[in-house]
């Protein structure tokens, strides 16, 4: 078999997963895209292992290890997603902006208490109470 077939298929699958990671909004769909990328790497490992006829079969061993690590990763990732969903009420990666550098609409509740009086611009004053109320509703 020509080596370009599995290599090109793996490259295209990896880029499909890359698009999914960048474009999806739901966290679980992002995890699915990460699985696609990991599988593309696995296909590359198996194809090159079969091509090189390695006596140690490092490619296939690494593929098995990658599958096990992916299983562990999906377990931990889903636990984190469920914890975030329980405390925030959403699993939308675009709304989880607690550590974002911009201070619009989703600042920490302590910061809004301190800074809502004077330092905030008028545009932020319109959006800050909504974000604060949403946060309080999610944490209650």
């Amino acid at each position: 078999m020509h080596l370009a077939y599995p290599a090109v298929l793996a490259a295209l699958l990896f880029c499909t997963g890359l698009y999914g990671v960048l474009a999806r909004r739901n966290t679980i769909l992002v995890l699915m895209s990460v699985e696609l990328m990991l599988n593309a790497v696995n296909l590359n490992l198996v194809a090159f292992d079969v091509w090189l006829r390695d006596t140690l079969h490092s490619g296939q061993a690494l593929t098995l290890f990658t599958i096990a690590v992916a299983a562990a990763e999906i377990g931990i990732g889903l636990a984190i997603v469920l914890a975030v969903h329980r405390s925030r009420g959403t699993s939308d990666v675009d709304r989880l902006r607690d550590t974002a550098e911009t201070d619009d609409a989703e600042a920490l509740p302590d910061d809004t208490d301190d800074a809502a009086d004077g330092a905030r611009a008028t545009a932020d004053q319109a959006t800050a109470p909504a974000g604060k109320a949403q946060k309080a509703e999610a944490t209650a």
Binding site: V46, V50, L64, L82
Partner: peptide, 30 residues
């Protein structure tokens, strides 16, 4: 097709059997 039979069945068992089920449970719980 690449004659890696064991990895193929491990793929079916772990990915199709458990990871997709975990993802479906995650979708349900969120």
């Amino acid at each position: 097709l690449l004659t890696a039979e064991f990895i193929a069945w491990v793929q079916v068992l772990i990915y199709v059997g458990s990871i997709v089920v975990l993802l479906l449970f995650g979708l349900m719980l969120t």
